[in-house]
Design a protein around this nucleic acid. Structure first.
Lengths: 172, 172
DNA sequence: GACGGCGGCTAATGGCATTAGCCACCGTAG
DNA sequence: CTACGGTGGCTAATGCCATTAGCCGCCGTC
């Protein structure tokens, strides 16, 4: 009752965090649990269901990190709050790069996600900008920066701290 | 001499543009050409080589669109140039969504790309901002917007035109 | 007129997700 | 205490994918 599903998701998370989303294979997950791959289907509907669970948890953790960041920066004004939010976004994403990629690549499985999770996770951007359009724009900047950094799309030796600062200034 | 490789890349492009990168299968490409999948290996090293060629062409076309956009907007000042660049970026990406995703997802195969292509394609962002950090930040915003739009990550009914305008204003 | 290579082909391999069908174990109802 | 059903393993098999090996016909050239 407790946990086979949780065990599976935890094993999947380990696989993804250590070897990337490409390495997330029913085999790999099963190996972690000293089980054969087909046995997993006694507990989960398929690989996609595991991924969805991972996405939900990643979104949730990201939301927590962002809410915490702006809560901690309560009094500093709009510019400071924006900077704090962006810093937290980057830190959280870079702390779990493979999970971040998994959670943000491709369409969201909205039906399968806890009600309200998506809005809640994005809320800090609205709280910091006070405007829905500005919030989306700021989020786009943050996501673009993170994903391009993770994928090493920026030229080597790029001083990304300065680029982040440039963006924060533009939106502050 | 001319063409089998070009035929293959063209077939691959057709597959990707009409059914997405996931549908890019050696089978699917071979079918287009009325040959069997293994025959493709007489001409290309493998699937990845086809993808790389597609990526190079997509980058090149994107570069052309962006350079053309700022050339056409020569005299309008920084803000107008930024707006024109962003509009061209969005238009080009949305015109070939699957190719855009393919070309921007994951690490760039830099070794396999024509020398200088990457810099040239990104140059318009520098021309418009006059600053390398600002250029990277603006590019991140544009890429974030496009990829989130393509992946339908924004809530439905989002007025994305306004979000783009918000970003353009922030960076202008 | 033989010959070599280009560009097809079929067969096979190995990785992957998933399904079907088997069975041991264990707790519970009788 | 025993029979029974469900839970959670297992093996075998399917079908899709990339890729490799090895065969051969055709065509141009010497």
């Amino acid at each position: 009752m407790t946990g086979r599903v949780d065990d599976i998701v935890a094993a999947a998370r380990t696989v993804v965090e250590s070897h990337g989303a490409d390495a997330l294979t029913m085999q790999a997950v099963a190996d972690q649990l000293h089980i054969k791959a087909p046995s997993l289907y006694k507990h989960v509907a398929g690989k996609r269901a595991i991924e969805v669970e991972l996405i939900a948890r990643t979104l949730s953790e990201m939301g927590e990190a962002l809410h915490a960041a702006i809560a901690a920066e309560g009094g500093g004004g709009r510019g400071a709050a924006t900077a704090a939010l962006l810093a937290a976004y980057r830190r959280q994403a870079l702390a779990h790069p493979h999970l971040y990629r998994l959670a943000t690549a491709g369409p969201l499985p909205r039906d399968a996600l806890p009600e309200g999770l998506e809005d809640w996770a994005g809320e800090p951007f609205f709280l910091v900008t006070g405007d829905p359009y500005r919030a989306q724009a700021l989020w786009s900047f943050a996501h673009g920066m993170v994903i391009l950094e993770l994928d090493r799309r920026f030229p080597d030796h790029s001083a990304l701290d300065r680029t982040w600062a440039e963006g924060a200034a533009a939106f502050a």
